[in-house]
Design a protein around this nucleic acid. Structure first.
Lengths: 337, 337
DNA sequence: CTGAAAGCGCTAACAG
DNA sequence: CTGTTAGCGCTTTCAG
């Protein structure tokens, strides 16, 4: 550990070096305070010369307002939330804020811990892709005195604000799309869905959409494992093996699984979209890069992140946006269904 | 924003409620301080009843030691760094520390900003997958009075500690593997490599490895775009079009590109591994899930994260590990080369 | 085992 | 434009 117990330079040292009072140094180093240009320059020189890094702990404690926005997501194992982060970052960065990330791993308990932890740093706002809020978590959030955005899903009653799309509507839209393409018998392959509320919503919407056409789900399988390409492969295999009815089209809980399904078909000589239709959700690049581009639903993840951050920032400037902000999804017709 | 300007409960309130002094309340709420069990219980009750969340800003400012470990990575667009984070998290979580994440987007400037920002929160340690440290960044790091681990690559002279593998050796190993498989003419497809030092190291090692067998690179292409599956597809197409020599095996800068290459072959009826050999780097699941599993190098990313965090924690308890910690890679023979 | 006093490094509020 | 005073909420001494 370089330079063991040498304390960091403080504002007092900068002030002394510049020959001004502490508060003047403080003002000179921040934007938007009336300081004589010459003084400011002197202070900046002094700060630079001793490599001063302001202590935000002290600053925030004294000033009350932090520039840190907490972000809690359930996972980083697929690019979905990484994309959200990109959007969050793009918005925050421009405004001089920073994001602090927590990953809940789809665990409510861990989520609660993360929320508590985040709160102890007194952030200026919170962006949350909720897993399943514990009562304690919900209570903390309700008591918070900073803006909170729940992202991804708008099928919820938000604590403060929600940004995303209706996954139920998305599932329904895919059902309609498939029915309109002429498929008549439908399947579903999902992962450890109990932990993924949004996947459940899509499944519900899918069933509703089929019902709109007087169809119903002929075969459904949800494997109690985390989502992955391999799981999709395995899932489709089991689905097809388990059913005597001929399934014509399969909706997967997400693109990762659907890509696995596509690989399964390829390995087993099943032709898409004629012998079997495949559809996913997310619009990931990998699905579009396949020799047989995946039919799926593009969710605008970076935009969700950006809008969520924008809403926080708006609140911070005194304007409170609507409780719901919808970011559109759209069907991406590939060649698999 | 729920409950607008209501302040959070403070330790003083807890203390009053429990009928003890502030400092006793403080001790009761922390581990390892001598407090009568009954007193402790009373304080805990009080804290719970008013939903007390400690203010770490104040705590850290007063106490000097934070439990926050900064983590700076260049990107989250591929799972590589997400995997590292999982490892970091697993180690830190058990010890009661939390990770604060920053993403530099492969920009040295942004990296410097992130480092400065992180420093201003006085973290207990820093884990960094460096992009290309600016002089200023390096200076800050050298002046830090907390442990710093540079991860991924061990082909460097670390500021404090390094955890990872030698990418140069990995590149060389792949060259040897391919040469031993009987290939005699070699290509390389890379992305905007100028920003990815580790990919450059692998390329250098690859060339050295070929030289060990008296071979040299017959065709090499690096496209000035960020890595992606689609880029790999495009890259391989261009590589094959650009060269009159027949290339027998292609090493890609990473698995994403290699998967794209695999798709290209599939679309163009090129048989792997006989007509063309393909190899990647990382050992991502997507490559292994392909109908034709990718030949690649498994880098143990979660372990790198875990070891990095362990090293930080060890420093914090007074024991300083070696400057270099090697996490092994290994060739994963698929069916593409 | 518990408490009183002092201060971490900074900024808001008021004066000048 | 600049300085003085008084904290932010907690923990570290040092005493009991």
């Amino acid at each position: 550990m370089p330079v063991p117990n040498q304390k960091q330079p403080t504002l007092a040292q900068v002030a002394k070096l510049a020959g001004v009072s502490e508060i003047t140094a403080s003002r000179a180093l921040r934007a938007g305070s009336p300081v004589a240009p010459k003084t400011r320059e002197r202070v900046e020189q002094a700060a630079l010369s001793i490599n001063y890094v302001p202590n935000r702990l002290a600053g925030t404690l004294a000033g009350g307002s932090s520039r840190q926005i907490g972000v809690i997501v359930p996972s980083l194992s697929n690019i979905v939330f990484a994309d959200v982060l990109v959007g969050v970052d793009r918005c925050l960065d421009a405004a001089g804020y920073v994001a602090t990330l927590g990953v809940s791993q789809y665990s409510s308990k861990k989520e609660e811990k993360l929320i508590r932890d985040l709160f102890s740093w007194r952030p200026a706002g919170l962006i949350l892709a909720p897993t399943d809020l514990t009562p304690s978590s919900a209570a903390m959030l309700r008591r918070a005195r900073f803006p909170i955005v729940e992202i991804m899903d708008t099928d919820i009653e938000p604590i403060d604000m929600a940004v995303g799309c209706s996954h139920r509507t998305a599932g329904r839209a895919m059902a309609h799309y498939l029915a309109n393409r002429g498929y008549r018998s439908f399947g579903y392959v999902g992962h450890d869905i109990s932990k993924d509320k949004r996947a459940i919503s899509r499944l519900i919407g899918y069933k509703e959409g089929l019902a709109d056409f007087d169809f119903s789900l002929a075969a459904e399988i949800t494997l109690p494992e985390p989502s992955s390409v391999l799981l999709g492969k395995k899932g489709l295999g089991q689905l097809l093996a388990s059913t005597t009815d001929k399934v014509e089209a399969v909706f997967f809980a997400n693109d990762d699984l659907a890509v696995g399904g596509s690989f399964y078909c390829q390995e087993n000589g099943i032709i898409n979209p004629t012998e079997l239709g495949l559809a996913g959700f997310n619009g990931l690049q990998i699905g579009q890069a396949l020799p047989n581009p995946l039919t799926t639903i593009a969710s605008n993840r970076a935009k969700i992140g950006f809008e969520a951050a924008s809403n926080i920032l708006r609140c911070l400037t005194g304007y409170h946006p609507d409780a719901w902000t919808t970011v559109d999804f759209r069907i991406l017709p590939g060649t698999t269904a």
